[in-house]
Design a protein around this nucleic acid. Structure first.
Lengths: 202, 202
DNA sequence: TGGATAATACCTACTCTCAGGTATTTCGAA
DNA sequence: TTCGAAATACCTGAGAGTAGGTATTATCCA
């Protein structure tokens, strides 16, 4: 029987190189190529048809979540496993939404990884969720899309006026959104919101 | 000749497991143990005398920088290599200050890593600095200790009043520090400062 | 023993943000 | 089609942060 071919996309070369060795030592997998950036991979997407794609979510410029969607469009039959150093529940949800076949945190050990990858290649979906605080996760679920958009802008240090200009909104509207966000997350200032956003990887 | 023994401390098990394989395949190194948290390692420090320690800086609770100092106290003859997913120049400076023998980013590839580790074991010091913007680094150098302390408190979302209370200072004093920080970093609000602090891993 | 730097403290005027409202429109699901 | 959620917009008063000053110690280094 032939080996399962795989591709890795991860900007941490050391990690990618190590992961390749872990999969290869089983004798079941054969690596076709490693990409160290999302853009590099996108350029060649379409040329590399592998059975399995191991995609890091935190890729610097672009997100592995977007790559996942694109891979599934081009190769609907291939499996996509998202790898992440962050284990936030909302990331797992996003992974499912983007049609990934699995989510594996970088805190997983080599033997468990091998087992999970085998199961996923067998058709199972495996999403590892070790989340300790479901309350935080629920709070984040309350946020609407517009609110998430505004959180990202606040997080980057922008003031209400600047955000209003960028989104072509009234400052009043942005203020309303900010107030609603603070209320939902039970915070009391923009500073706390920014700290929260970074701490929870929003 | 006998192999060089090494210990890895990294909370990302997959990374640690992969790194172990990369070093072992050279035939020059022999792994003694992997620790997946700093506290776990500290408990056993003293029992494990290896020639080489590969320590991740970003360990969650405590910093690999502190472990480095402690290792050097207990085993002055051993080599300590700091591994980091962040390549900020001020981290490299901290690494040198903590008497590490090397600093290697996770973006390094396996073959270069092996070469560097060999050189470090031979007595060289190797600090990889791929920093692109030296201006930022210089700006951060301008900050005093007190200012750094206050940045950390601002970063966690605390207001001037709360910071003043915690440090037993007048609010005026904290305001002065904040102003000086904003001026030195060329920023104009606390929001921007927090975003800057996270972006530059302060 | 200067001189520079860091840390401390205070003041005013101005701007931005927050709490606590109200209100309209749009759009999708029941 | 009706109900509800989401997004939009406005208002006021209070509180927090910023700009641009001045000024006093303490400490370290030349």
């Amino acid at each position: 029987m032939s080996k399962i071919t795989f591709t890795i996309v991860d900007d941490h070369r050391l990690f990618a190189d190590g992961l390749a060795r872990i999969l290869q030592e089983t004798g079941l997998f054969e690596m076709l190529k490693v990409y160290n950036s999302g853009s590099e991979f996108l350029e060649e997407l379409g040329k590399v048809a592998t059975d399995l794609f191991m995609i890091d979510i935190q890729l610097g410029e672009l997100s592995g979540l977007d790559l996942c969607t694109k891979i599934k469009e081009v190769f609907p039959g291939s499996k996509v496993i998202l790898i992440s150093m962050i284990e936030a529940p909302h990331l797992i949800r996003l992974g499912m939404k983007n049609k990934a076949d699995g989510f594996i945190p970088k805190t997983t050990d080599a033997s468990i990884l091998k087992e999970m990858v085998s199961r996923i290649c067998g058709g199972e979906k495996v999403f590892v969720d070790k989340s300790s605080s479901p309350e935080d996760s629920n709070k984040i679920n309350l946020l609407t899309e517009r609110e998430m958009e505004i959180i990202h802008l606040v997080k980057s240090g922008k003031s209400t006026r600047v955000i209003a200009e960028e989104l072509f909104l009234s400052e009043f509207t942005v203020e309303t959104h900010r107030k609603n966000i603070l209320k939902k997350l039970n915070l009391s200032s923009a500073n706390e919101l920014i700290a929260y956003a970074y701490a929870n990887h929003l």
